[in-house]
Amino acid sequence: MKSLLLSAWRYRYFILSSIKVDFRRRFVRSRLGGLWMIINPLVQAAMFALILSQVLSGRLPDMSDNKLAYPVYLLSGTLAWNIFTEVINRCLTVFIENSNLLKKLVFPRICLPMIVTGSAMINNLLLLGSILLIIIVLGFTPGYNVIWLPLLMVITLTLSLGIGLILGTLNVFIRDIGQIVPIVLQLGWWFTPIVYPASIVPKAVLPFMRLNPMYWIVQSFQNAILFNTPPTWIALGCITLISLVLLRMSLILFRRASSEMVDVL
């Protein structure tokens, strides 16, 4: 494990320059470049705000009088979900997309997921920045609990990297995974209170929903930005623990698989 991280450290310049390249590449050919990455979730949030705000804005707890509450709620959840899915989706295909490099060149393979994670992180920091800007321009001032956001983002990142690396490694061998995961993520999006508040979910279903780690993460984002309350520490602590276990498992799996990975690519 140590050697894995040590070799990644030796390649730190390459990782950094690859993230830069990845970011710059999007600006070379298109005028808005990397901005397209954040326009997509923002437009999606705007659509839901437009269609559902009349129905749902009154349902948010303690916020029935605030017109901006629903858009802010939506944007907070969108940010959390976007980090989660972007890291997973990119880790899912990272080895397959770079099969040429993996087959011909020698470099620590662990660099690849690190590069996509880093580049996803930059995208989402941009998204965070624009979301904060938008809600401030709209006239909503977030409370001091936004200071938890960086920590929340790191936890989300750890969770999604653990899951993404496991799925990405398996996807090299079992390509069906690449098809299933987007569907599962789509379902997950609807089963997580992002466009609707948890309070409208039937009492019988709620305990099941709470088994979903993203339920807690999305809720913590909403708490930090909209409700100005600290995260649910117990749940978040558990999720951090689960994430670290998943990450550890993914690295073990990755090490097992990496010797055979090139054989099947």
Binding site: R10, Y11, Y13, F14, S17, S18, V21, R24, R25, V28, R29, N100, L101, K104, L105, F107
Partner: peptide, 22 residues
């Protein structure tokens, strides 16, 4: 290998030499 057509020769030189671990 690993050359990106959108970047200049210089940028690609840096990038591929980085890939070689320098």
């Amino acid at each position: 290998m690993g050359f990106n057509p959108d970047f200049t020769g210089r940028q690609n030189a840096f990038h591929s030499a980085g890939l070689m671990g320098f």
